[in-house]
């Protein structure tokens, strides 16, 4: 596998898409996947459990400085920004919200782009604001692969459309095409 990590950002309308992707990943998928999804700040529990129901791989909300392991899905915790640092560890942060969001997709994407450079796949799914657009641009500038969910398929197309305006994405994919892509890498 030539990639070292996948990072996915989503907001309104992305939950079913994420669930479908996680249910269809091969059990032997051997790089980490980071999920940065907009969620209610004050609801700490339930999301990880809901995503776990159909996922083939374990889902973890990391603690600060937890090691990043292959074959695990990491979900940004409520009310923290999630950074992937050099040296394969997470750092969490309580800096102010970015794009009204904490966790912010842009911030997670920026740190992943810096750490994984051209070994990273970034995916933006359905969502109602522009968070993630600059993050996907940064992934592209660092040599990574930029994918957006096809706006035609999105419940809310603002987020992928903003990403497409910010950078020239590599692929515009339906959910099924995203799954096939992830199975191939």
């Amino acid at each position: 596998m030539s990639y070292k990590a996948v990072i996915i950002g989503g907001s309104a309308g992305s939950f079913q898409v994420i669930t479908k992707i996680l249910a269809n990943l091969p059990a032997g998928f051997d790089i980490p996947i980071f999920l940065c999804l907009h969620r209610l700040k004050h609801v700490r529990t339930g999301f990880e459990e809901a995503l776990s129901i159909k996922s083939t791989l374990p889902i973890i909300e990391p603690y600060d400085k937890q090691h990043i392991r292959p074959g695990k899905i990491y979900l940004a915790p409520a009310n923290y920004h999630m950074y992937m640092e050099l040296g394969n560890t997470f750092s969490l942060s309580t800096e102010p919200p970015v794009n009204h969001s904490r966790p912010s997709i842009d911030l997670s994407f920026f740190s992943a782009a810096y750490t994984y450079k051209n070994k990273l796949v970034g995916i933006i799914l359905s969502g109602a604001n522009k968070d993630g657009a600059l993050g996907l641009k940064q992934i592209k500038l660092a040599g990574g692969v930029a994918i957006v969910q096809s706006p035609d398929e999105c419940q809310v197309k603002t987020m992928p459309t903003a990403a497409m305006a910010a950078t020239s994405v590599d692929y515009v994919y339906t959910t099924d095409q995203i799954i096939s892509f992830l199975k191939r890498i």
Binding site: Y83, L86, S93
Partner: peptide, 8 residues
Amino acid sequence: KSFTAFVR
């Protein structure tokens, strides 16, 4: 310091 947050 933690790198990313301190850069910010």
